[in-house]
Design a protein around this nucleic acid. Structure first.
Lengths: 165, 165
DNA sequence: AGTCAGCAATTGCTTGCTCAGTAATTGAGA
DNA sequence: TCTCAATTACTGAGCAAGCAATTGCTGACT
């Protein structure tokens, strides 16, 4: 494997790879998603006093009454580690938004349930969330593109789920 | 503003809003982007010893020789605060990947320049990056959808850039 | 019954970021 | 020319996440 002082052919190829359209498209995805999430997060903090992550938890807990969710399930849904989830739920419990209760079926699992306060906050936050999504995500996209966008995202998401290594 | 014990009509509407297709589509975007970035990041750490963020810096520094970039510019490009950028460059300088030099035009700005080591790492990392992007982002998407995906992303990105408040 | 591999949750430590506040420098207007 | 608001970078403090190691529990296999 010879190493020259002057750039080799393959070096130029590598440099080109980093600037390829595909890689830039990818960058656009990451950047847009990052900014979107920041937008949502700051709107929620300002108007409702909770983070976006906390709202995502509440969304899953408030689907229907009596349907508690395990931390494991939340972790998977939110793309978090279990330790991250533990501490997220700690903070939400501290804030009076949720409550932990032991699972009757498996004493390892901690089920999470919203408090009345949690439900109330959810009801205030959901429209804020929906509003920002509408403004920053749905509205800017041409209707023709929208369907393709979501199907592309599903494909990506599914591919990522399969080879979960 | 009357408050009843039983859920009001508007509460149901709020709950429905949180479960609307639009909001779920948005969730899919966030989740896919998060996972994609994790994938890239861990591949780069494992195979090249740098984070995804660091590679993004190197990409911008290695475009062409002699084109130094200010930290401000990097911060904007990477969606970071300026203090985050300061410390990122601190770490990269520590690792011997980049060097700071004062701007001759404006003594406030710190220009950033890659070292030889930084360029070498970039050349090793770029193909890894490209490979994962290809596998996880480009390949899973049907060709018909791909063009729409990127145009949708551009529209979103542009909309986010305009009302930068 | 007894063992043991595996999973859920938690905890200590580290990392990578933000926020708020500071200092130096610039450029535009009185 | 002087002043002053805006801009660039840096620093201290704090927060939210990850990783690694631990505990308690479960279910499967001998």
């Amino acid at each position: 494997m010879p190493m020259n002082a002057t750039p080799r052919q393959s070096d130029k190829a590598a440099a080109r790879a980093a600037n390829s359209q595909l890689v830039r498209d990818f960058g656009l995805l990451i950047k847009s998603a990052t900014r979107l999430e920041q937008r949502i997060d700051s709107a929620l903090r300002r108007e409702c006093g909770i983070s976006h992550t906390m709202l995502e938890v509440l969304i899953r807990l408030c689907r229907q009454p009596g349907e508690e969710v395990s931390q494991r399930q939340l972790a998977d849904d939110l793309t978090l580690t279990s330790s991250g989830t533990t501490r997220l739920i700690d903070r939400m419990e501290e804030a009076g938004l949720v409550r932990r209760l032991p699972s009757p079926e498996d004493r390892r699992v901690a089920l999470v349930e919203p408090t009345d306060e949690g439900r109330a906050v959810f009801l205030r936050a959901a429209p804020v969330h929906a509003r920002v999504v509408e403004e920053c995500f749905v509205k800017p996209v041409a209707p023709d593109d929208y369907a393709r966008l979501t199907s592309a995202l599903s494909e990506i998401h599914q591919a990522l789920g399969e080879d979960a290594g």
